[in-house]
């Protein structure tokens, strides 16, 4: 074969293979860009479409179903995103589906993710608007993290103060931490506490037993709680006691009034209680009465021996015997 023909064949092969590779590449890239598939248009309105651009992927529950066709600003708070969705995926997307803007991994490109909505929706139509859920933007995340950082700073500062107090030699925590005597006391306290707890448990058991007895109607307490007749009697007694108490109260009030009158009045009783002269006179009168009584006794004794009345006294003495 002629040399020039060989060269031409080789060149032709070189170019044809190159062109075929180019066409395959274009086909593959086109297939990924939904160029060779039947698609239908959908739109969604977001307040923020940061990072979203023409050609960004559209996914339905994480599976690629289309691409973003245009991103347009509608007004100062609305961005409209038009999408091309594969027609074969239309059946899965309903009117209740929700579109969100997500990231492909932590550092990946932004994309539109359509998630299944509430049941009851119908298959979506061309040029329909999907419900949207606006994404949490990075600034909001950073603001939250800033708040968390501030909290962490405060917590660490408190921990610093706490550890500083712990290291303070005169502090209670340091004493607990380092002082062996305190530790021994604490240990003893815990031991005592354990004993007390044991006793409390015993008491509790006893109370439980008593309660059981009461519940079974045994003993005086059970009778007190369960006997209706006794209860009635007790109620009557209580009523009587109440009545008596009321009467006593009335008497007490009267006595109080009397004492008040005695204290405030100019009567004999008040004079007897307060007038010392009268008291001295009374005392003297009593003494006189004693003397008079003694004289009367002597007179009576004399009368017994008198001949006029002797007979009467003898007769009385015999009668008494």
């Amino acid at each position: 074969m002629d040399k020039s023909v060989k060269r031409n064949i080789l060149l032709g092969l070189f170019v044809v293979v190159g062109i075929v590779l180019f066409i395959i590449g274009i086909f593959l890239v086109g297939a990924k860009s939904e160029m060779f598939k039947n698609t239908f248009p959908l739109s969604a309105k977001f307040t923020n479409a940061t990072g979203l651009k023409i050609g960004s992927n559209v996914r339905y529950n994480g599976v690629k179903v289309g691409i973003v066709k245009t991103v347009n600003i509608i007004d100062d708070s609305t961005v409209q995103v038009d999408m091309q969705i594969e027609d074969s995926k239309r059946m899965f997307i309903t009117t209740t589906a929700v579109a969100t803007i997500a990231s492909d991994g932590l550092m990946g490109d932004k994309l539109v993710n359509i998630i299944t909505g509430k049941p009851g929706g119908i298959t979506i139509r061309n040029y329909a608007y999907l419900q949207t859920h606006n994404p949490i933007n990075t600034e909001q995340v950073l603001q939250t993290l800033s708040g968390s950082n501030e909290n962490i700073r405060m917590i660490t500062e408190n921990l610093k103060i706490l550890t500083s107090d712990l290291n303070n030699k005169n502090g209670a925590l340091q004493m607990l931490y380092k002082d062996t005597d305190a530790a021994f006391d604490l240990k003893t306290s815990f031991s005592n506490l354990r004993l007390v707890t044991g006793k409390v448990a015993q008491v509790s058991q006893t109370l439980q037993d008593i309660t059981a007895l009461i519940q079974h109607g045994k003993g005086t307490a059970a009778e007190l709680l369960n006997d209706t007749v006794l209860g009635h009697n007790l109620a009557s007694t209580m009523a009587s006691l109440k009545e008596t108490s009321n009467k006593l109260n009335a008497v007490s009030n009267q006595l109080s009034l009397t004492v008040q009158h005695v204290n405030n009045g100019n009567g004999t009783v008040n004079m007897l209680l307060t007038d010392t002269t009268l008291a001295a006179n009374v005392q003297q009168s009593v003494l006189n009465l004693k003397k008079a009584s003694k004289g009367l006794d002597e007179d009576m004794e004399g009368l017994k021996h008198s001949f006029l009345l002797r007979k009467y006294f003898r007769k009385k003495s015999r009668k008494n015997k």
């Binding site: 180019f22 590449g25 274009i26 593959l28 890239v29 086109g30 297939a31 990924k32 860009s33 160029m35 023409i54 050609g55």
Partner: peptide, 14 residues
């Protein structure tokens, strides 16, 4: 590789 590429990468480059 082909998932990432777009016509906007290929056409100006070519």
């Amino acid at each position: 590789v082909f998932d990432t590429l777009k016509f906007s990468d290929v056409i100006p480059s070519f």
